[in-house]
């Protein structure tokens, strides 16, 4: 990844190809096959390990994506926060904890799909590929966080200007070309994930049922709950 032509291809051209495919792909899929816009729950097939993978990966990835977004949108404020070593360390430790949580989650969900035949049956090749990409991405990010600290600061001064240059159509790869291999890998794999996004279950992120957060609570009545002969326990969240 040190060849200048390769650098241009990977850091200046790949992003545009990936973004183009992302927008075109997500829109086309929504228009042509709206009912596939889902991550097809497999909770019914196995529910115990599912919890540990699912919650850990989602809460981890939410926090990490939010961090990347903040570095991109308000880099100066992030640097201002980091201008006291203690605050820098707190931010870094929290970020690392969430990143590890995401990694544990990703490994948990893929292991579950390997281990439980029922879950394996409903797993597509695209699932395996995107899962592997996400695990690699999280692992590379964690490696960078540990061995090339302090990323929350230098992301704001080196990665954010690169991303700005891409989004404003003035690609400037000078910030990236001298970065260590693993940082470059994280960036390239990131763009590949963006490009592959529309063809995977990740599209569910675009149609997250956010109104659930503020809509009025609904009361579900479970008729006949008392007449079943063996009912181990009442499902949680069900009131009567």
């Amino acid at each position: 990844m040190t060849n200048p032509t390769m650098n241009l291809l990977l850091f200046a051209m790949l992003p545009y190809v990936a973004l183009f495919v992302f927008f075109l792909g997500t829109i086309m899929r929504y228009r042509k096959a709206p009912f596939t816009y889902s991550s097809l729950s497999s909770q019914f097939l196995e529910n115990n390990q599912h919890f540990w993978g699912l919650t850990a990966l989602h809460y981890g990835i939410f926090a990490i994506l939010l961090g990347h977004l903040m570095g991109l949108l308000i880099p100066r404020q992030v640097l201002l926060w980091n201008s006291r070593p203690l605050r820098l360390y707190v931010l870094e430790i929290f970020s690392l904890a969430f990143a590890l949580m995401a990694l544990v989650g990703f490994v948990g969900v893929i292991e579950r799909r390997i281990r439980y035949p029922k879950a394996r049956t409903v797993t597509t090749p695209a699932d395996w590929i995107i899962e592997s990409m996400l695990i690699l991405q999280a692992a590379a990010g964690i490696y960078v966080a540990i061995f090339y600290p302090w990323g929350t600061s230098w992301y704001s001064t080196s990665a954010a200007p690169y991303l700005h240059s891409i989004f404003f159509f003035r690609p400037d790869i000078s910030y990236l070309v001298t970065m260590p291999f693993i940082v470059k890998f994280h960036v390239v794999n990131g763009w590949l994930i963006v490009g592959f996004f529309p063809f995977t279950r990740l599209v569910h992120a675009l149609v997250a049922p956010l109104p659930y957060l503020w809509r009025k609570p609904q009361l579900a009545r479970w008729y006949g709950i008392g007449i079943l002969p063996v009912w181990p326990r009442r499902p949680s969240g069900v009131r009567d």
């Binding site: 115990n48 919890f51 809460y59 590890l100």
Partner: peptide, 22 residues
């Protein structure tokens, strides 16, 4: 410290969904 934070996070998730359907 990061690992410690993660373990605390997982314990919190478990506590938060204490009554989950298992």
């Amino acid at each position: 410290l990061g690992v410690g934070g993660m373990v605390l996070g997982l314990i919190s998730l478990d506590a938060l969904w204490k009554t989950r359907f298992r």
